[in-house]
Computed example of a mutant assay.
Amino acid sequence: MSAALQTINLEKRFGGLVATNKVSLVLEHGARHALIGPNGAGKTTFVNLLTGVLPTDGGRILLDGEDVTARSQIQRARLGLGRTFQINQLFAAMTPVESIGLAVSERMGGGGDIWRRLGSRRDILSEIAELVERFRLTDVMDQPTRALPYGKQRLLEIALALAGNPRVLLLDEPAAGVPEAERGELLETLAELPRDVSILLIEHDMDLVFSFAERITVLVNGTHFAEGSVAEIMADARVQEVYLGSDEHA
């Protein structure tokens, strides 16, 4: 059976700078896989290549065995590739219920028609309620997003990504900016994400990486530097030297 997501010798250059240097990665079905590396390692560029934000300069991207290298961002999303962002992309004036309702309706082809149809679509209402509860948003579901604690905003963004019914979900630094007091709720929610969604986590918070991931890939200077289980990466002296053991990149 093909991998959920695979890159083969993926390349990206910006002039003379090689940002992604023939990176090959396999994300298995149901994976909890983390991508780490020091600042400037090329993690964001890699994610932007996966999602179609940037065109590749070489190599291939396969989604469940299908070559999507030339597909647009929208086409990849429709094929089941979802993502979150380092800086959240939310509608500040909308409530979590409204935002999730819009996302679910968009997936079903209804768009803004959600508000007229809500009363007659129990399936939509049920899915909204399930996502609100799963992402611990019940207590803030009717508040404007701008008023939510930042940890709740992060949870809402992941809920919106999941509302798109992705097969593969790229989580781009979900813990970035979340206060320490709110991280426990975020970690618990991530641990409970459905196993039928294959997840690639891009993260600097090593507590989150080690508690969430089952496999870790390390990028350094745009190159696939190391890969293995959590225990193998923690014990890898080369990784300790360039990343884990450095205060600069903690």
Rank of each mutant, 00 (worst) to 15 (best):
Pro96Asn: 10
Arg136Cys: 12
Gly110Trp: 15
Thr95Asp: 01
Ala161Tyr: 02
Val140Phe: 11
Val104Met: 02
Asn165Ser: 15
Gly112Met: 13
Pro174Ser: 01
Leu169Asp: 10
Leu193Ile: 09
Leu171Pro: 14
Val197Ala: 08
Glu133Asn: 11
Glu127Ala: 03
Ile158Trp: 05
Thr138Arg: 13
Ala163Asp: 05
Leu200Gly: 06
Ala191Gly: 15
Ile124Lys: 03
Asp113Met: 15
Tyr150Gln: 07
Phe210Asp: 00
Leu193Phe: 10
Met94Val: 05
Leu200Ala: 11
Leu170Asp: 07
Glu106Phe: 12
Ala161Arg: 03
Asp196Arg: 14
Leu155Glu: 02
Arg215Thr: 12
Arg136Glu: 13
Arg195Ile: 01
Phe212Asp: 03
Ala159Pro: 00
Leu169Cys: 08
Val178Gly: 02
Ala147Asn: 14
Arg134Leu: 12
Ala93Gln: 13
Pro194Trp: 13
Val178Pro: 03
Ser211Thr: 07
Gly111Lys: 01
Leu186Glu: 04
Leu162Gln: 02
Leu131Ser: 04
Gly151Arg: 00
Leu171Arg: 02
Pro149Cys: 05
Ile158Arg: 08
Glu180Thr: 12
Pro149Ala: 05
Ser120Asn: 07
Ala103Asp: 04
Arg134Ile: 02
Ser211Cys: 01
Trp115Glu: 12
Leu187Met: 14
Leu118Asn: 00
Val97Asp: 07
Glu182Ser: 06
Thr145Lys: 03
Glu133Cys: 02
Thr138Asn: 10
Ala213Asp: 07
Arg136Tyr: 08
Pro96Lys: 10
Thr145Asn: 07
Ile100Glu: 04
Glu180Gly: 03
Arg167Gly: 13
Asp139Glu: 15
Asp205Trp: 00
Ser105Arg: 00
Gly177Asn: 09
Gln143His: 09
Leu208His: 00
Gly112Tyr: 11
Leu156Gly: 08
Thr145Cys: 15
Arg117Leu: 08
Val168Thr: 08
Gly184Leu: 12
Ala163Phe: 02
Gly110Ser: 04
Ile199Val: 15
Phe210Gly: 01
Leu131His: 04
Arg134Gln: 12
Gly164Phe: 07
Gly112Lys: 13
Leu186Asp: 06
Glu130Pro: 09
Gly119Asn: 06
Ala163Thr: 01
Trp115Arg: 14
Gly112Cys: 04
Pro144Leu: 07
Met206His: 05
Glu98Val: 02
Glu214Cys: 01
Pro194Met: 11
Arg122Asp: 11
Ala147Val: 10
Gly110Ile: 07
Ile100Arg: 00
Glu182Pro: 13
Ala163Gln: 01
Ala129Lys: 10
Asp123Gln: 06
Arg215Ala: 02
Leu118His: 00
Ser105Ala: 15
Gly184Glu: 11
Ala147Gln: 14
Val178Ala: 06
Glu203Met: 03
Gly111Phe: 01
Ser198Glu: 07
Leu193Gln: 08
Val197Asp: 06
Gly119Cys: 02
Ser99Tyr: 05
Val197Cys: 09
Ile124Phe: 09
Asp123Ala: 04
Pro179Lys: 09
Ala93Lys: 12
Glu127Val: 04
Ile128Gly: 03
Leu155Gln: 02
Ser120Thr: 10
Val132Leu: 14
Glu133Tyr: 00
Thr138Met: 11
Leu170Cys: 06
Glu182Phe: 08
Glu192Cys: 10
Gly184Met: 06
Asp142His: 15
Tyr150Lys: 06
Ser198Val: 10
Glu127Asp: 09
Leu193Trp: 11
Arg146Trp: 14
Glu192Thr: 15
Glu214Lys: 15
Glu214Asp: 14
Leu170Ile: 11
Glu130Phe: 08
